[in-house]
């Protein structure tokens, strides 16, 4: 299992409180020029399908519940990437009344990517880092079970029966 997890990480993106700058740059990462798909990264909409959560923007009082909800739905092992300074500390908006702070106030973060907004190259770097962390986590969480003795179950051999009388008649015809 751990051998294959890092080969194709599926990414779900959540816009928390962002100004859209990081979002469009992250989407640009996936498109042909930067092409995150060459690392096997696939962008999905459903958190249940994903391995890596990419969050842009800081947390406010309303979306913190949504963020936690999305995070909880991702199956373990999972990695979280905080894109941009807003996701790290609140950035430019840290003094706003409705901003609680960086996303680490709600969920654990594995990789911080600095920048306002980060360049797509930096974002790709961040995702590749997250993949390494994901691989490590997979190894840690992998439980090795004891080899069980293999029991081969075979069906009992049927007693040889004479052919049914009807079938015999048909074959005669």
């Amino acid at each position: 299992m751990s051998k294959f997890t890092g080969k194709s990480p599926w990414v779900v993106h959540f816009n928390c409180n962002s100004c859209n700058g990081c979002d469009i740059e992250f989407l640009a990462c996936l498109t042909p020029l930067y092409d995150a798909e060459r690392f096997g990264v696939l962008h999905v909409g459903n958190p249940k399908h994903a391995d890596i959560l990419v969050v842009t923007g800081s947390v406010n009082k309303k979306n913190m519940h949504v963020l936690k909800n999305v995070y909880d739905q991702i199956p373990s092992p999972k990695a979280v990437v905080a894109m941009g300074v807003c996701a790290a500390t609140g950035g430019l908006f840290a003094d706003c009344y409705n901003v609680v702070g960086g996303i680490d106030k709600v969920i654990p973060v594995d990789v911080h990517v600095p920048g306002c907004p980060p360049k797509p190259e930096a974002m790709l770097d961040g995702i590749v880092k997250a993949v390494e962390i994901l691989k490590k986590k997979t190894k840690e969480t992998e439980t090795v079970t004891e080899e069980l003795p293999v029991v081969i179950v075979k069906p009992k051999e049927l007693p040889a029966e004479p052919a049914a009388p009807e079938a015999a008649k048909e074959s005669e015809k």
């Binding site: 409180n17 962002s18 406010n60 309303k62 979306n63 949504v66 908006f93 706003c96 009344y97 901003v99």
Partner: peptide, 14 residues
Amino acid sequence: IGYVHRGLERLAEQ
């Protein structure tokens, strides 16, 4: 709505 509300207008006054 309200998932992206930051209160930027208020910050601009400060």
